[in-house]
Design a protein around this nucleic acid. Structure first.
Lengths: 230, 230
DNA sequence: ACAAAAGTGTTAAAGTTACACCCATGT
DNA sequence: ACATGGGTGTAACTTTAACACTTTTGT
């Protein structure tokens, strides 16, 4: 090891994803109040305190800056180019987070965090620092990951109609999905429980059964060596 | 963001993988000269200097501590639990690196770095700090990744007999592979060029043709949307 | 009765797996 | 001539992809 320590600041950032059937995938951004990049949009985040873990830091910053609590959090990548912050050397450990649909819609409506706002992931503003790069990586990661891990359920409510799941995949993968093949495959995995509830109809169409992701069952099956793949 | 910066040190660590047909997969470790964990084995690494990128830091530390230059380097994960170093708060950005077979064998023989040593990945000593956890993650990552990205070639020489590739996969995936099916699949991908060289026989068996990974071709095919998968 | 969304099965094509014998070389 | 590792094809099976009509509800 080198003899001396470093004068480098350590920050965390979190790309928070929300989803609703009608609006698709959204990402939570905050507007900067101070220079540099004053008034520009940025990914929420901040410096890590001496005695908290990285994940604790992310959760704390998210509450402070946006009032949000997330139910899924995963480390994405660490960005550390010497010049990524014009003021000083900052390395940032980026996370991505997923928020359940009902909560996302509540948050959208609330005014708790005046300078936090959701943006559709296909229509994002320009961003401060290297945040565009971070965000693109996060989107790419989520896009890839829903194909081999059941993280999509973290964006839906606990109980959801099958078509919501399908729409989520269509949105993220950005291509059509054959409804019959998709449901066959999903149901064949054995990780979805059918409930005896039905979606309250929204005025049109046949009401759909509500399904529920069975996490325990999934974990058992993982041990037995199944692989989720869509 | 929080107002204040942090008093956290930033380090990088690198899990270096080497491979040879006879010895299988090895990992490069160094023996610590000073407390804490004096004399224990550890993953090479050290603090990031103020003006170098993370990757530069990894390469510099590897040269300083082990005399090695690597040909493939990828970020693995960032470890930041507050208590992972007993002395002070250190977050470490871990990388994994792959070394080509010929170079690995040279390094094994050389005495450049007295306190650096290669260990078979199935027979590792106990390690300082949380390095066991880091190492396990690295092994898991490489194991998974060779199945969907052609990183295996970074462990072989530029030209290699087909059976070396096969043995590498058998070793890492820890299961038998059907020679016929494996070569069919690999060759069907169209990313291996047959050379007109033959392996100099080692006294027994039919000499094998030498193959070569065609990186350009692979990158073209990726753009066209193939997916490498074994 | 019609519009809208949910629910459901079959067939062809592609991909994967299982399996065994001959070939080229050194001793 | 034998021991050793290299090289190769085919058939059964599994998985995936393509495709359209019926059901339930609200208006």
């Amino acid at each position: 090891m080198s003899a001396s320590g470093s004068e480098i600041k350590v920050a965390v950032d979190a790309i928070v994803f929300g989803y609703s059937k009608n609006e698709g995938v959204s990402i939570l951004l905050i507007q900067r109040k101070y220079p540099p990049f004053k008034n520009m949009w940025a990914i929420p985040g901040g410096f890590v305190l001496p005695d908290e873990s990285l994940e604790e830091a992310v959760r704390r910053e998210l509450v402070e800056e946006t009032g949000i609590g997330v139910n899924y959090l995963e480390q994405l990548y660490t960005f550390g180019e010497p010049d990524r912050d014009p003021r000083k050397r900052v390395i940032s450990i980026a996370y991505f987070a997923l928020v359940k649909s009902a909560q996302f819609q509540q948050l959208k409506a609330s005014t708790d965090a005046e300078n936090a706002q959701w943006f559709n992931f296909k229509n994002l503003p320009s961003l401060a620092f290297d945040h565009k790069k971070i965000l693109n990586l996060a989107i790419e990661r989520v896009r890839t990951k829903i194909r081999y891990q059941p993280i999509g359920f973290e964006l839906l409510d606990r109980k959801f109609p099958f078509s919501d799941l399908e729409k989520l995949y269509i949105t993220l993968l950005d291509r059509d999905i054959d409804r019959r093949n998709f449901s066959k495959k999903m149901l064949a995995l054995g990780i979805l429980d059918e409930t005896n509830e039905y979606a309250k109809s929204e005025g049109k169409g046949r009401p759909s059964k509500m399904y529920q992701f069975n996490k325990k069952r999934y974990q058992e099956l993982v041990k037995e060596g199944i692989n989720f793949e869509i």
